[in-house]
Design a protein around this nucleic acid. Structure first.
Length: 389
DNA sequence: TCTGGGGTCCTAGGACCC
DNA sequence: TCTGGGGTCCTAGGACCC
């Protein structure tokens, strides 16, 4: 038995660490992985962090903070395959693995103790296996619940392990800033600070109903639980069959802001094709189509429309978002970004399409199938709508 | 040359139905 | 004449996470 069965494993500066395997000459130098132009930092190695560089920082500011930084392009294929290998290593320890993203997961090791030893030993073994096999380091938090394990792994970084037994949970949690809690971002942190709640201990000792009046019923309850370390200890394993996504979308920031309707409608077609293709590959269809528009000043709006029937057809998605765009009646507003999302996804097999008299939609779904087939055979550059050529 | 792209969940108001 | 609740769907926005 153990009273700390939950491990949170988090790769250290994952994208940067993976990218550096190909560039050992850059080890010890400041390195970030990120997009060019208007992009942001996806990952920064620990040398770059000494200059104040962090994830999500605009690349323009990175150059100012550290002019001699090396910027590497993200290589998602490699990230994905390294991630799959790491997840496989986790599953050799326990089948109860809940992946949170490419680079982090929770493990429940309750069933592995007899075979592999105490959680701390399991954590060290995982770390050395991943280091030997993948050449990257990770950090592990060990606790009785997921949020304490997650906070512990953050504290253990880089390249460490921290175990927080139940008796030490409050002394570990309560000195932390409220902003450390899962679900507390910039806005909620500022709100809590305004109420005089600076630390997790302050939140813990605030009456629940007071907290709920400040931040809402749901979040208030959530934060109260987190502040006492009494959140969930059961994982939802992500291997095997699992729930389908609830939505799929794509958006893209233009290289330069634009007010040209042709450019915008063409971009919406590209995005619709991307989303439709992913939906068809996943075997899902959805009824609610959402257009996202971000203006040059970064204000962002959405407009959505629920169709009579679910669709996975590129042309239908594109027609819906184009109508939403035209309904905005924009004159000279310059757009920074447009996005397309389809929500309310259901298995495609469950959709019975009604044939509408006088509106023969035949052909578009077949056209998509031909595109999908050619894409699989020749790659996505091979086939695209005529107006994109 | 400030501020990506993929998502999830919550809130809140109005419509509509019982 | 005035007054009701609850439930679900739709839309828009916002906060958050990785």
């Amino acid at each position: 038995m153990t009273d700390t069965p939950i491990l949170h494993v988090d790769m250290d500066a994952f994208y940067a660490s993976v990218a550096l395997r190909e560039r050992p000459d850059l080890v010890g130098e400041p390195v970030v992985v990120g997009g060019s132009g208007r992009g942001v930092v996806l990952a920064a190695n620990y040398v770059a962090r000494r200059y104040g560089i962090r994830s999500a920082l605009p690349m323009t500011r990175v150059r100012r903070l550290c002019p001699h930084v090396t910027v590497l392009e993200p290589d998602y294929d490699t990230f994905t395959s390294v991630s799959a290998s790491v997840m496989e290593t986790f599953r050799e320890v326990t089948p109860v693995v809940e992946a949170m993203s490419l680079d982090e997961a929770f493990l429940d090791v309750r069933g592995s103790l007899r075979r592999l030893g105490q959680p701390a030993e399991i954590a060290e073994r995982l770390r050395s296996t991943i280091h030997d096999e993948q050449g990257i380091t990770c950090s592990v938090g060990v606790a009785a619940s997921v949020s304490v394990a997650k906070l512990a792994s953050r504290r253990a970084k880089p390249d460490g392990v921290i175990v927080v037994p139940p008796a030490r949970v409050t002394s570990f949690l309560h000195p932390l800033d409220v902003g450390e809690l899962y679900g507390v971002g910039e806005k909620t942190q500022a709100l809590l600070h305004r109420f005089g709640l600076l630390t997790v201990g302050d939140v813990a000792h605030t009456p629940l109903d007071t907290l709920q009046r400040a931040v809402g019923v749901h979040l208030g309850r959530h934060l109260h639980d987190l502040a006492w370390g009494t959140d969930r200890a059961e994982l939802n394993p992500t291997s095997g069959p699992h729930e389908p996504e609830r939505s799929m979308g794509a958006d893209e920031t233009f290289g330069r802001d634009t007010d040209d309707r042709d450019v915008i409608v063409r971009e919406l077609l590209r995005l619709s094709a991307r989303v439709g293709g992913r939906m068809r590959a996943a075997g899902v269809a959805g009824r609610t189509v959402t257009l996202k528009v971000r203006f040059a000043d970064f204000t962002t709006i959405t407009r959505s429309r629920t169709l009579p029937e679910a669709t996975d057809v590129t042309v239908e998605i594109h027609r819906a978002v184009t109508r939403l765009y035209d309904a905005l009646g924009l004159q000279r507003a310059r757009l920074r970004l447009v996005g397309v999302r389809v929500e309310g996804l259901v298995a495609r097999a469950s959709v019975q399409r009604q044939l509408v008299l006088g509106e023969p939609e035949h052909g578009w779904a077949e056209a998509d199938r031909a595109v999908d087939l050619a894409t699989r055979r020749f790659g996505s550059a091979a086939v695209r709508p005529a107006s994109l050529v």
